[in-house]
Design a protein around this nucleic acid. Structure first.
Lengths: 342, 342
DNA sequence: TCAAAAATGAGTTGCGCACCTCAAAAATAG
DNA sequence: CTATTTTTGAGGTGCGCAACTCATTTTTGA
């Protein structure tokens, strides 16, 4: 039918040389605006797409990406790293390398420092970022240096990052609210909320969404003040015990962050697990078990594998100047119950 | 650090020529088993991955895939085709072409004929298949001809297809059951099931899973006999009216296939929408609206975009002899409620 | 042992593009 | 007008591999 077009065909159509087409394609200087337009028109007219394999092959230089992740035992973050590992051969075949840099993301200065270290050393970076002025500045510096930057899991919307890979946390909170409300049935009673800290952007957003739904749709349920367990099992367990003791009519529980094992322990040992609609976040070894034995009713989850792959794909597409398949890269809010456990 | 390896390096390591490495890599004949082993060892030892771009470039010939889809107005199938369209530039950059062949998939002879037509004409095919002996034979012929074959949405497990892109329908039915059961609260009453036809494999599997959960976990709920609306709005609406009239204590409804608009119309006009926990399948314009206005409580969904992309990626990986990222290609059972509508 | 068959080596070509140099032409400033 | 700068053309090289050909070596069978 139609033999695939090449840059040579575009050059002929535009009435210019191959060198000029190359200059236009790579935004190199020294081409008159008028000529640029002619070449771009020719490409548009024939819906030309440079052969991805050829351009990839020609650019000898391997691409280097970095993932800046929280240090510590956060199982969700570890799952992302595992999934990165599983992409190894996929990346090797594309001559990509990914370095994982772990750091204390809760300390803005440390995080910003790690980001500054990357300037000029990588083609792109995925960052689990704290939303803080110095972090924002470091991200902007990285972008300025020509690197592509995506924020991961937690966004810094005011920075110049090219893309955010993660879920809408307000919607996630609303979803949790709808589930707790419905699972609690038509009963009347109190709802407990356990969070890591309301200073964390994603936690705050989830609580906001949750409260929105409870106030709007489930008036018969009274939401208690948020307890802050700092994502730690022990602390969360202790607070949960106090809540359960203080309020005999708790019929719903939303655990916003981690520390799920502690929360569940307190709930189980109170003997009231069957009476409380319990919704939390993420599918980990702990939550999987709780879902299976019925202590937990649902988990709101973002797919760590999808996030890892999406971050790499988006960085690669940005680096190559290819379009991003927005539908593909949208991270969905998964509702996971016992029967659709992945 | 380590300059990327090439086939030349492998040849040197294995103590053979480039030609022999090439023969081994492409399973060409005329190499002693002992030599094959030495070459493969060398590749394994150094974790060698052929440069994807280079091999793609060298094979000049464009790849042709075919998608065999049901004709008719099934919105889910149309969404898959739309998503294929959105991949156009992605595929163009990789010199892939995809032909969509629509056919009456409910007629085994017609479907098998279409598949036989593809033999020798494509490098791969994705098929929404009926599980029938003649279809199975046609799939096997296609595989025999060297084409890669994936079944899409509906599987033919006994065929020699290379891969299935779709969800576990029994688990989907179980998930629907868990949702209807919980949303119905602690109440006692009857549950209605509307399906396209129990002769369809996916519908039958969903009903099986649904019934399993209802019988096991929600004894207070009595499941009525399955009504078959043939995925048509009018027919489904009519049957639904009859059911609602005959049973005043229906508190749950599971719509297994399409025809959702008809089912919802009957339910709404009965004035009992608020009392009935209604769970159906797929996010379409119709179900989206029903979720938003509260008539429908949840939709079990498989992401059509994911299925389209997964089918293409799997066919491409199979054709290139690359490994498949199983976690990436697993299609998840999405639970969609008003608040996490994508 | 020798002829036939099998296995292997050595080499070539081209895929489409990125990236480079150098010369020539055109536009612009003085 | 000339001198300078800007723009464009022409061409080369190499990325790593697929897919071939043809000669040479090794193995096998009679």
């Amino acid at each position: 039918m139609d033999a695939p077009l090449t840059l040579r065909d575009i050059a002929r159509q535009a009435g210019v040389s191959l060198a000029t087409v190359d200059r236009v394609l790579h935004n190199r200087p020294g081409v008159r605006p008028d000529t640029v337009r002619r070449v771009k028109d020719a490409m548009t007219r024939s819906a030309f797409q440079p052969h991805a394999a050829a351009s990839e092959l020609a650019r000898a230089r391997a691409r280097r990406f970095a993932f800046v992740m929280p240090s510590g035992a956060n199982p969700f973050m570890q799952q992302i790293q595992v999934q990165l590992g599983e992409m190894a051969s996929w990346m090797a075949a594309r001559r990509l390398s990914v370095d994982v840099v772990t750091t204390d993301v809760f300390d803005p200065a440390v995080l910003a420092g790690k980001l500054e270290d990357l300037v000029g050393r990588v083609d792109g970076a995925a960052v689990v970022a704290l939303d803080h002025p110095s972090v924002r500045a470091a991200i902007n510096d990285l972008v300025e240096s020509g690197a592509k930057v995506v924020t991961l899991v937690s966004d810094v919307p005011s920075s110049r990052r090219h893309h955010y890979v993660g879920i809408d946390n307000i919607a996630a909170g609303r979803t949790a609210g709808a589930l707790v409300g419905r699972f609690a049935g038509g009963r009347t009673g109190r709802i407990a909320i356990m969070a890591g800290s309301q200073a964390l952007r994603d936690h705050a957003e989830r609580i906001f969404g949750f409260s929105q739904v409870m106030a709007g749709e489930f008036r018969q349920l009274e939401v208690l003040a948020v307890a802050e367990g700092h994502d730690e099992d022990d602390r969360s367990e202790h607070l949960m015990r106090q809540l359960l003791a203080a309020h005999r009519d708790i019929i719903g529980l939303y655990n916003v962050g981690a520390g799920t094992a502690g929360v569940a322990k307190a709930l189980t040992e109170s003997g009231r697990a069957g009476d409380v609609a319990f919704v939390g976040h993420d599918v980990t070894a702990v939550t999987r078990k709780l879902l299976l034995n019925g202590v937990m009713d649902a988990a709101i989850s973002q797919n760590p594998g999808h996030e890892a792959r999406s971050a790499v794909r988006v960085l690669l597409a940005l680096a190559r100047g290819e379009p991003i398949l927005s539908e593909q890269e949208m991270i969905r809010i998964d509702i996971v119950m016992r029967d659709n456990l992945p």
